[in-house]
Amino acid sequence: MVAIKQISIFMENKPGSLARVAKTLSGGGVNIRALTVAEAGDFGVIRMVVDDTAKGYQVLRDGGFTVSETDVLAVELKDVPGGLYEIAKTLGENNINMDYAYAFVTAKAERAMLIVRVDDLKGAVEVLQKAGIVIATRREVQNI
């Protein structure tokens, strides 16, 4: 399966929340590959992809955070105008909903990737691959 695991963390919107998460992960030797914060008033959700999900999940739980794991796709963004549009269009035409998405650039700045959460993972993989869009595997994301 090409789905990768995203870690989500519940966070109150107060100073230092994000720093505590980052510190906990670095203390456990876990590296963040991609991260986004979604806020809603007094609270927010930190979503991230890390190099070692199992370990990341464990150190965060042990650190007292509320954590969940979600299957997401890491889709390669073609470095051409309309790269994002192509992905959205392909999913939309096939009636697959994108719950949210966030982009990041790999450390060596070789590639841009889009993390996508969809309501139909299997269907999304199929239609994206058919459209010639590259989906990164777990191993690839770990090794970025």
């Binding site: 995203q6 989500s8 806020e39 979503r47 509320t66 969940s68 979600t70």
Partner: peptide, 14 residues
């Protein structure tokens, strides 16, 4: 927020 209920989707929490 308990772990059982925590969702990665903001909408669910709201």
């Amino acid at each position: 927020v308990t772990e059982q209920v925590f969702s990665d989707k903001i909408a669910d929490l709201m």
